[in-house]
Amino acid sequence: MSQLNSAAPNQTTTTLTLAKALNAGMRAALAADPKVLLYGEDIGSLGGVFRVTEHLQKEFGEERVLDSPLAESGLIGTAIGMAQRGYRPVVELQFDGFVFPGFDQITQQLAKLRFRSQGRVELPVVVRFPYGGGIGSIENHSESVEAYFAHTPGLTVVTPSNPNDGYWMIQQAIATPDPVIFLEPKRRYHEKGVVQLDAPAHGLHEAAVVRPGTDLTLICWGPMVRTCLDAAAAAEKEGRDLEVVDVRSLQPLDFATIARSVEHTSRAIVVHEAQRNYGPGAELAARLQEELFYVMESPVLRVSGYDTPYPPSKLESDWLPNLDRVLAAVDQSMAY
């Protein structure tokens, strides 16, 4: 076994990439509960196209780490059946753009069976997949699809932004009694970070203040947390003290943590890769104006992808929110 078990017995931290931390988290979940299964295309001998499940089939066998036929609807649908009989399938879909052949099974079946059965059927299914852009991919490999699922009652939607969250959130997601859409920021797979091995710092559905500040709150998740932290560091040089909140869980939303931050700073910008219109930023902006109208010094702004399909990769750096666009929005907000 790799990293974690080769660590000294008393070791309480280690440094891993996000991909390796997710791998370690799934290994721990497989070891802890024989009902946990990993299920997906190319996850066995190849270890997934991003190697997130590397070595796990060898360690836990083909009965627990299953290479599936190339059919997303089939994957989700059969995972539902397995979950009805007490298994905890962790389904990997290969890319964000390949979720849609399984869309009915996710939004109309997985999301609704608890409600349909009047609360009797429990589906502890995790559907995990890499999302977002920034790695120079071809079409259908860079989509930010969180709004579809956060909009669907019955699903929970979470996304880690760093290796420690990756390690803990995947284990917490697998332990959740409801379906979890687990979004992995693929452009951050290879970024390293310290992983606490003794206990998680947060619950699965808690937001986290990842940088305290007083002037303005940047609200972000997944791939944009690093971008926002970089923007906050740059703004500091201009004498601005920005707070960064990592939302971590889009459904359910820990609005209390976000509200506490904005009550304190009075200004907020939501930053996401997804297209703007009807996107997740609209929900956050609406909630902030509904609940904190008298606190706000300026309108909630959104920095997002444009309202076009994801562009060819040579244009993606201009399409994705970057440090300059975040800082321009900060200027705009502070000018009120």
Binding site: Y306, D307, T308, P309, P311, P312, K314, L315, D318, W319
Partner: peptide, 22 residues
């Protein structure tokens, strides 16, 4: 490489007001 602004003209037969603004 196409000019970035060309992407706004490829989405619909006529760009929407939002796309024109973006």
């Amino acid at each position: 490489t196409p000019r970035f602004e060309e992407i706004f003209d490829r989405v619909y037969a006529e760009p929407t007001p939002d796309l024109i603004a973006q």
